[in-house]
């Protein structure tokens, strides 16, 4: 473990990513303590509408006079919560399916993998939008739609890893000493497939924040007055070009957060995949 950490800290982009992720996590947890005006999530102050950035309001104020810095800070919690929920559900669906398909083989494996391919054949955003709409738009439907379209990524990875491991010597040995299927799959194969899963999940967190922001922007996710980043950008469009700060800062928050997860994910992938390590 300490060896991995030492290697990771030598990779500058990965360290930048890790730092961003930690900062975003702290902001999400301590949000109400850090935000200068935590009440501005819902409150409105019509006397100070659309004020440009200043010392009192570093990111300016929006159309209802709410401090944009406070809303960006408060939005971090929502964004991370959505991303973590979606990735957890996707893992809960995708990993078992991948394990079954990879270990069992046969027609069941064919069926699972064909469905996986079919879902992967449609761009995630398009499918998620269609699903969210069919489930009647709300934050919960958006989260469900994102989970139901992200699990195939995990199934593919776990399937490939399981197939590889199933034919390996130690699994044969385990069978030989009479270990049960569940024991082999969950206690021995799954831990060996953990690193690609962790890498996928890290990148998935960033990706989900991005797609969730699109859903929020199109009005298929969070509902006002939630301080959702995507929703804020959508609301800001009426006030352009005068209130440039209104659209700019929530977008920067998305950019930095997603970049953090991507850099960290890339760094982790280089660590666990020796083939890639050579080429850098």
């Amino acid at each position: 473990m300490s060896l991995i950490l030492r290697k990771l800290t030598r990779d500058v982009p990965a360290v930048i990513g890790l730092t961003i992720v930690i900062i975003v996590l702290i902001i999400a947890i301590l949000g109400p303590l850090l935000a200068p005006y935590p009440g501005d999530v819902a409150a409105s102050h019509l006397t100070r509408r659309l004020k440009p950035p200043s010392w009192a309001y570093p990111f300016g104020t929006d159309n209802l006079g709410r401090d944009i810095l406070s809303r960006v800070i408060m939005g971090a919690r929502g964004a991370l919560m959505v991303a973590m929920t979606v990735v957890s559900i996707a893992m809960a669906i995708g990993i078992p399916l991948g394990l079954i398909a990879g270990y069992r083989g046969g027609w069941l494996s064919e069926v699972i993998m064909r469905v996986t391919d079919a879902v992967l054949a449609i761009p995630q955003l398009v499918l998620a939008l269609a699903l969210a709409q069919l489930l009647t738009p709300s934050l919960e439907s958006a989260m469900l739609a994102l989970s139901l379209t992200y699990w195939p990524f995990f199934t593919r990875i776990v399937f490939a890893e399981t197939r590889r491991l199933t034919s390996s010597l130690f699994v044969d040995a385990l069978r030989g000493i009479g270990a049960g299927t569940a024991r082999i799959v969950f206690l021995h194969i799954l831990p060996n497939a953990a690193s690609p899963i962790i890498v996928r999940a890290t990148i998935g967190l960033g990706f989900t924040i991005l797609v969730a922001a699109v859903l929020g922007f199109l009005g298929m996710g969070a509902t006002p007055p939630a301080p959702d980043w995507g929703l804020s950008i959508a609301e800001s469009r009426t006030y352009l070009p005068a209130a440039w700060w209104y659209a700019t800062f929530p977008g920067l928050a998305i950019l930095l957060t997603v970049m953090g997860f991507n850099l960290l994910g890339d760094g982790l992938r280089d660590l666990v995949d020796p083939r890639l390590r050579r080429s850098r």
Partner: peptide, 9 residues
């Protein structure tokens, strides 16, 4: 990492 809709705006 950039959100296309934001970059467009």
């Amino acid at each position: 990492a950039v959100a296309a809709f934001w970059f467009a705006i």
